[in-house]
Design a protein around this nucleic acid. Sequence first.
DNA 1: TTGCAACTACGAAGGCTTTCGTAGCATCTT
DNA 2: AAGATGCTACGAAAGCCTTCGTAGTTGCAA
Lengths: 141, 141
Amino acid sequence: MSKAPPPKPTDSELEILHVLWQHGPATVRAINDNLSQRRQAEVGYTTTLKILQLMLDKGLVRRDDADRSHVYRAAVREQETQGLLLDKFVDATFGGSALKLVMQALGSRQTSADELAQIRRLLNDIEIQNSTSTADDDDNA
Amino acid sequence: MSKAPPPKPTDSELEILHVLWQHGPATVRAINDNLSQRRQAEVGYTTTLKILQLMLDKGLVRRDDADRSHVYRAAVREQETQGLLLDKFVDATFGGSALKLVMQALGSRQTSADELAQIRRLLNDIEIQNSTSTADDDDNA
DNA sequence: TTGCAACTACGAAGGCTTTCGTAGCATCTT
DNA sequence: AAGATGCTACGAAAGCCTTCGTAGTTGCAA
């Protein structure tokens, strides 16, 4: 009955999720080391620990505390989480228009020919889907 | 001299900026009415006033206090502000890859044929620019 | 002129996020 | 066995954002 939807991660939490998504399950020590590398400065060990504990409460991570050093792993998927954040961002910043966002992202930025090609490929896929799936749409979120 | 870079607006501030971008200069009363419409609930008048005062401090808006009812107007441009926010968002959420963001935005979302066409047009423009303006480029990212 | 309505300024509370210090406990080493 | 090391739990502080109440002032109307 109660599948509480996973809440929107904060910036620090998102940073930790990136580590977990990239490296898989890890101890606080490993996560903290990784975080310290990414940033300029050292991150306090207990800071990382605390955030992980809060994330556990929120359901953003799970942990295995069989061993003395608990092992944390992401409880939310990368794409889903990014999609969630993207939705909110599009609403807040571009009034809900994903098109505006895409135009802005492509327009005011260096985009390589390779990337442009990838996007074209995606556009083709979408158009094919749009034209073929018109008969059988059975999607509910 | 010190052209202090305009700081990143918060969510509430951004909401107010949207009103100002859309309607031009306005009084607190007008802004507050507009805000109250967008949301479900009434927004406290002094809440709006307070945020505008903070925005004035930050340089996000300017005001004309010739009349008793001060008139506020945006001091930052829509596109620039959106670009700034987009940069931060891409960094935090997609590890700096604008491509991933675009793919996610287009992939997990309903995109109309019309919108797809607009994006294609933009892609064409970009490719033309890439080939004409840099006749002799070997690109390195 | 007196009183009401509208406006600005300001302080403060509450919530959230991030950071860190400390305490307590288990483990390992010598 | 005893001490050092490393780990977790927890409390608390600081900063930021949002919200609102209150006080003081100005302008208008009766």
